[in-house]
Design a binder for these strands. Structure first.
Lengths: 112, 112
DNA sequence: TGCCGTACTACGACAGTCGTACTATGTCTG
DNA sequence: CAGACATAGTACGACTGTCGTAGTACGGCA
């Protein structure tokens, strides 16, 4: 099994998180499970990486947080949800474009 | 012009350097120029990044250094050349495989 | 009762990149 | 002839993102 080094993904964790949030607000634990399942467990984001990404991204204005119950009962435990902002959308789109270039560039140095 | 963030390339600088060295020994300034030209100036490695990569890679045993004159005259200024080692070759091949997986994984989070 | 899953927070370490600055030589140009 | 520019580096400290470790707290299930 080829392991993906974090140095490669570094710079795309935020993009992955934003991608998940395109489908509506979500929260830490759920996002980490989705990343795991989307990648067939080829990439599993570390908890600390994820939560520190939230802090950074909220500071950047790419996401907004709000708290809500786990169910709709109004008495349940609270969870911190995040939603993507307009700025986050812009950032996401820019990252997608950047990815195209990056792929091209790196490919020139790959020989099988 | 889409700029490639260093966080993405991080982890592939070494691979790029090794790729250049596949064609025989080379030295810092030459390698940086080659990376620039191969990528049509889409990626330009910083001097400090390059030279600190050399130190790291030699410590890792991925490259070996030796000094030689600029020309064959025997009186010229010395340059530090680097050549790829067997271990470096192995590392390079592993990185190429890793890249395939990385591409796949990141692609799942890209939407145009 | 104790463990697993959920849902986090805190803290400090580490690696790689980058800005800045400095040295030194050779060549080209006005 | 002076000054700019290309060549070929070294030194040092700052910064960012990731990660290891640890701890909290609640619910459900065996």
């Amino acid at each position: 099994m080829v392991e993906i080094s974090s140095d490669v993904i570094r710079g795309y964790n935020d993009t992955m998180i934003l991608f998940i949030l395109l489908n509506g607000p979500s929260y830490g634990y759920e996002i980490s499970k989705q990343i795991k399942s989307i990648t067939d467990e080829k990439y599993v984001i570390k908890e600390t990486t994820l939560y520190s990404a939230f802090t950074r991204m909220e500071k950047n204005g790419h996401i907004e947080s709000f708290t809500a119950d786990q169910d709709g009962s109004g008495n349940g435990k609270k969870r911190t949800y995040y939603r993507i902002t307009d700025l986050g959308m812009q950032y996401y789109r820019a990252k997608c474009e950047e990815w195209d270039i990056t792929q091209e560039v790196v490919a020139k140095f790959i020989r099988h």
